[in-house]
Nucleic acid binder design. Sequence first.
DNA 1: TTACAATTCAAACGCCCGTTTGGTTCCTTC
DNA 2: GAAGGAACCAAACGGGCGTTTGAATTGTAA
Lengths: 206, 206
Amino acid sequence: MNSPHFSTKERILGAAEELFARNGFAGASLRELTSTAKVNLAAVNYHFGSKDNLVNEVFRRRLDELSAQRLEALQQVLSRPAHTLEDILAAFIHPALLLSLDKSGGSTFVRVLARAYAEHNERLRKFLSENYGHVLKEFANAFGARLPHLDKEELYWRIDIIAGALTYAMADFGVIKRRASMSEKIHRERAAEHLIRFAAAGLRAE
Amino acid sequence: MNSPHFSTKERILGAAEELFARNGFAGASLRELTSTAKVNLAAVNYHFGSKDNLVNEVFRRRLDELSAQRLEALQQVLSRPAHTLEDILAAFIHPALLLSLDKSGGSTFVRVLARAYAEHNERLRKFLSENYGHVLKEFANAFGARLPHLDKEELYWRIDIIAGALTYAMADFGVIKRRASMSEKIHRERAAEHLIRFAAAGLRAE
DNA sequence: TTACAATTCAAACGCCCGTTTGGTTCCTTC
DNA sequence: GAAGGAACCAAACGGGCGTTTGAATTGTAA
């Protein structure tokens, strides 16, 4: 992660992701962060201007790619004439799963994302909604087309529930403890499987 | 909330709930907290020993009652011979809904609870698991009895998903914005309805 | 009323925070 | 190899943090 062949900025972003996930945005100090990243204390303010802006950059680095992958997967699913509800769900959930399995810190970023929700920070919500809200809308359209029996309000409620469940499941917040015999990878893949099956049934309800 | 006829301890707990919800546990300082509660700075350490223990007490004050209500509702449901899966879900979700509608701070406590999930704090998780883990187990048994086709792992995954979605929905994290014409009360009741229907379908899947 | 415990209080403790500074080193470019 | 900008660094800044102290105040029971 913080090997010497990574640039200072990259090492800072990596350490920030790690510590934001573990201790929260307020709880992660620049001193611990720069020490983890093996850079000078002043490097954060030199390269990112402030701690607040560092938070933004941590999100941007991952969400640009995640959103692109989701939209591409959705497009690919919709181009197949025989696609199912589960396929659309997979287009939404699978990129998040892949990200969570990413060798270089992706798994911790999912927890950072969940923290962002919990922070309820208006500045951050606005940033996320403005930059990545259109992705949710695309998926809502896709679900809506396959679920004509649901009115718009019902549909949005259910997508909201799925997003919440996905966030919590991927961030490993629940009571389920991974057994020692099961790898992290398989554990998360199971979570995604269960979530897709559960969410598909929930969407089809009534 | 912090009227003079409340005791010092009660005023501290009320202010703590409010500030923990708004700023998180690390983000809420004892100076702002005691100032809000109109008590001396040293009062927290005098009455609660430490900030960490104050966090515990904020949870205990609400969760004792919530857990009791959930278990009582569950018992009542199970005593009826013709109860449904939705009834059990309602026994779990409805007390949380009532709490979130409580006039004196209950709605903010739900957000504190959601923060606790996101914090991923080992100390806090242990406290919650030790004190309130048995409630989840009771419900797991009830669900399991009605869903014999699910093995234990499947069952726990689904309960985990439901708990996550409930926390997320009640804490108002999602994209759904309450319309101005709809009261907070009705908005949350709708959320609970949708969640029950969604979760029941998810539990019955496969 | 007196004695004692419980509570409240202002002040201070040592510590860690995000940020800034001014100098040093590194790396281009000519 | 000299010039100059980019990057790095140790040190310090002011300020807020959780906690502790010891004295003042309030409440209570004899």
